[in-house]
C-alpha cells in the first residue's frame, strides 16, 4: 500500500490558443504569465471571444491583473478563490455551446476544481487545456474519513479532519480533484516519520 513510484499523476500541458467559438480562460497567480505567453500566439480577435477569470494569490504583483486586463478580453473578472473561479466557470458553461474552449492555469488545486466544474457541465476532461504554474501544494483526500486537506506541502501530512497521519500518494482522482492520502502508520500506530516539506 505504501509503495513508491505510482504513475497515475495528472499530466499538464502548455497553454496554446485553440480554434473555437468562444474561450473561457482561468488563471491563478503565476498562471497569469502562462496566459500572457499564450497571448503572443493568439490570432487576431481571439480575446474578443474570450472570458478571463483571474484569481490573485496573496503577495501577487498588482501588474499581473493589469497585464491580463490589457489583453482586451470581452469580459474580465477577478475572483477571490479557486472555488469562486470554479463557480464562475460553472455559471458561464450553463448555456454554453459546443465550440467553447476552457483553459486553466495555476496550482493543481485550482486546476482540479475547474476541471471538475467543466466536466460537470459536459466537457470531457481530456479536452480541457491545462498548464501548471505556481506552488506544488496539493489537495489531499483522506481515504479513511473522506475529508479534504487543502494546500498540503509536507509528506506525510496530518488529516485536518480525522487527525490520522497520511502518506500522500501520487494517485490522483479527477472526480474528487485531489490526491489520495492513506494512513502511514496503520500497521504500527505511532511510528509515522516526521513530516518533510516536499510539495513547494
Amino acid at each position: 500500500m505504501l509503495v513508491e513510484g505510482i504513475k497515475s499523476r495528472p499530466v499538464y500541458g502548455v497553454l496554446a490558443p485553440q480554434p473555437g467559438l468562444s474561450h473561457i480562460i482561468v488563471a491563478e497567480g503565476e498562471g497569469a504569465e502562462a496566459v500572457l505567453r499564450m497571448a503572443e500566439a493568439a490570432p487576431a480577435g481571439f480575446f474578443a471571444k474570450s472570458h478571463l477569470i483571474f484569481v490573485p494569490r496573496g503577495g501577487d504583483r498588482p501588474d499581473r491583473a493589469d497585464g491580463l486586463r490589457a489583453l482586451g478580453a470581452a469580459d474580465f473578472q477577478s475572483v477571490g478563490s479557486p472555488a469562486d473561479a470554479a463557480a464562475a466557470v460553472a455559471t458561464l458553461l450553463r448555456d454554453a455551446k459546443m465550440g467553447t474552449q476552457v483553459y486553466v492555469t495555476g496550482t493543481e488545486g485550482l486546476i482540479g476544481l475547474v476541471v471538475q466544474a467543466a466536466e460537470t457541465a459536459g466537457i470531457d476532461h481530456a479536452s480541457i487545456h491545462t498548464e501548471h504554474r505556481g506552488s506544488m501544494a496539493r489537495r489531499v483526500q483522506c481515504v479513511h474519513c473522506k475529508g479534504i486537506t487543502e494546500n498540503v506541502t509536507t509528506q506525510p501530512v496530518k488529516c485536518s479532519h480525522c487527525g490520522l497521519t497520511l502518506l500522500v500518494r501520487d494517485h490522483y482522482s479527477r472526480r474528487i480533484g485531489a490526491f489520495q492520502g492513506v494512513c502511514i502508520d496503520a500497521e504500527e500506530p505511532g511510528t509515522a516519520p516526521r513530516p518533510e516539506e516536499l510539495f513547494k
Binding site: Q18, P19, G20, L21, L93, A96, K97, M98, G99, T100, Q101, A121, G122, I123, D124, A126, S127
Partner: peptide, 28 residues
C-alpha cells in the same frame, strides 16, 4: 449545446469534411 456528441457515417469525403470543420469550430 455543450456536451453534444457528433457521429458521422457516409462517404469518405463527407466524413473528412465533417471532422475537419468540427475541429475548426472548436469541437474536441
Amino acid at each position: 449545446p455543450l456536451g453534444t456528441h457528433l457521429y458521422v457515417c457516409g462517404p469518405k469525403g463527407m466524413i473528412t469534411d465533417v471532422i475537419g470543420r468540427a475541429s475548426e469550430f472548436g469541437w474536441p
